[in-house]
C-alpha cells in the first residue's frame, strides 16, 4: 500500500517535472514586478557570434529593471523558430526581437505578430517585405570594403593575398568577398589563393596548409572570420612562417578576434556588431511610444594592436 502510494507520488512528480520542461515559458509566469516582457528568438546558439548577441541583449536588458527577456534558441531549425515566434504571440509579449534563420519562411509569423499588435525588431538577417517595426543589422559588404582598403594601406598597395572565404553559398560570405574585392581594386594586391573554409577553424588550417605548400611568398591572409584567421595562423606557425605573414579576420568578438589581436596573432580584426545592445535600446524606445528609424545600419570598428585596449577604432 505504502509502496503504491509512493510510486504514484514519484510518477506524479515525474510527470510534473516533464510537463514543466515541455511547457513554453509564458508571459504570465514572468516576474510581475517587470513592466515589459520581451521575447528574443535566436536562430542558432551553436555559433559563438550568436551566443554573443544573446549575451549583449541580456547585458543591455539587465540595465533596465523594468524589462524581462525570454530567450528561445531554434537550434538552426526554421520551423522551430517559427513556432517560437508563434508562442511569443500566444503569450502576448510586449515586444519580439528576432534574429531569423532565413527570410522567406519566417516572414509570415513576423507579419502575424505585427497584426496582433506586437512590435517586432528584426536583427542581423532580414525578413521579406516591410511588415516589421525596425531592422537592425551591420553591412558585411561595407565591412569587407573597409578591410580591403585597410589592407591596401597596410601593405603599401602591393602584395599577395590568401583569401579564406566563409562559404560562398551564404550571403555573409558573398558580401565579405565582393566588398573586399572592391576595396582592393586599383591596387597591386593579388589574391593568389581563395577557397571556402566553411567558417570552420580546422578547415581553414587545412586550406592554409595547401596555400603554404603552393606559394613561398604570401603577404597576408584575409579570412572571413576570426577562427579562420586563427586556423591559418596555426598552419603558418607549424610551417615556421607565421612571422612573415599578416593575418586579418572579421567579427572581433572579445574572446576571439580581439583576444587574438592582443596576443599578436592577428594584425587586425574587423567588428561585425551583433546589435544586441541596440535592439534593447530601440526596443525601449518603441515600448515608450517614441518614434525610431525603420532601418538601422550598425557602425563597425577595427581592432589592431594599437587600438584594441582602447575599444577599437570606428570605421568611416
Amino acid at each position: 500500500m505504502m509502496q503504491s502510494v509512493l510510486s504514484t507520488m514519484v510518477k506524479a512528480a515525474a510527470v510534473l517535472a516533464v510537463a514543466g520542461m515541455l511547457q513554453p515559458v509564458s508571459a504570465e509566469s514572468a516576474n510581475p514586478a517587470k513592466k515589459w516582457t520581451i521575447g528574443m528568438s535566436q536562430c542558432n546558439l551553436g555559433e559563438p557570434w550568436r551566443v554573443q548577441m544573446n549575451a549583449d541583449v541580456k547585458k543591455a536588458a539587465e540595465a533596465h529593471p523594468e524589462l524581462h527577456v525570454i530567450f528561445k534558441d531554434a537550434q538552426n531549425d526554421t520551423l522551430k523558430q517559427r513556432a517560437h515566434v508563434e508562442e511569443f504571440v500566444a503569450a502576448n509579449v510586449d515586444l519580439i526581437i528576432i534574429s531569423p534563420k532565413e527570410a522567406q519562411p519566417l516572414t509570415p509569423p513576423v507579419v502575424a505578430a505585427m497584426h496582433a499588435g506586437i512590435p517586432v525588431i528584426v536583427l542581423d538577417r532580414r525578413v521579406v517585405g516591410d511588415k516589421y517595426t525596425c531592422f537592425i543589422g551591420a553591412d558585411n559588404k561595407k565591412i569587407g570594403q573597409a578591410a580591403g582598403r585597410w589592407i591596401v594601406q597596410k601593405l603599401g598597395g602591393k602584395g599577395t593575398i590568401v583569401e579564406l572565404k566563409g562559404l560562398m553559398t551564404s550571403t555573409p560570405g558573398q558580401d565579405r568577398n565582393s566588398g573586399f574585392r572592391e576595396g582592393i581594386k586599383g591596387s597591386d594586391l593579388k589574391v593568389i589563393f581563395d577557397v571556402d573554409m566553411k567558417w570552420l577553424e580546422p578547415n581553414a588550417r587545412k586550406e592554409m596548409e595547401s596555400a603554404l605548400s603552393r606559394f613561398s611568398d604570401i603577404s597576408l591572409v584575409y579570412a572571413h572570420n576570426d577562427p579562420g584567421a586563427h586556423g591559418a595562423w596555426l598552419a603558418a606557425k607549424a610551417a615556421g612562417r607565421e612571422k612573415n605573414i599578416l593575418f586579418v579576420g572579421i567579427d572581433a568578438l572579445p574572446q576571439e578576434g580581439q583576444a587574438y589581436v592582443k596576443q599578436g596573432i592577428l594584425t587586425a580584426s574587423f567588428e561585425y556588431p551583433t546589435g544586441g545592445r541596440e535592439a534593447i535600446e530601440n526596443g525601449l524606445k518603441i515600448l515608450n511610444g517614441e518614434k525610431i528609424e525603420k532601418e538601422i545600419v550598425l557602425p563597425s570598428r577595427v581592432f589592431t594592436a594599437e587600438t584594441v585596449d582602447k575599444g577599437g577604432e570606428w570605421l568611416k
Binding site: 560562398m168 553559398t169 589563393f193 577557397v195 571556402d196 566553411k198 587545412k206 595547401s210 605548400s213 603552393r214
Partner: peptide, 15 residues
C-alpha cells in the same frame, strides 16, 4: 582526395 581538391583551390560546391 581532400588534399588534391584543396591545393587546386577547387570551390566548395564543385568539391
Amino acid at each position: 582526395l581532400e588534399k588534391i581538391l584543396s591545393i587546386n583551390a577547387v570551390g566548395e560546391a564543385a568539391r
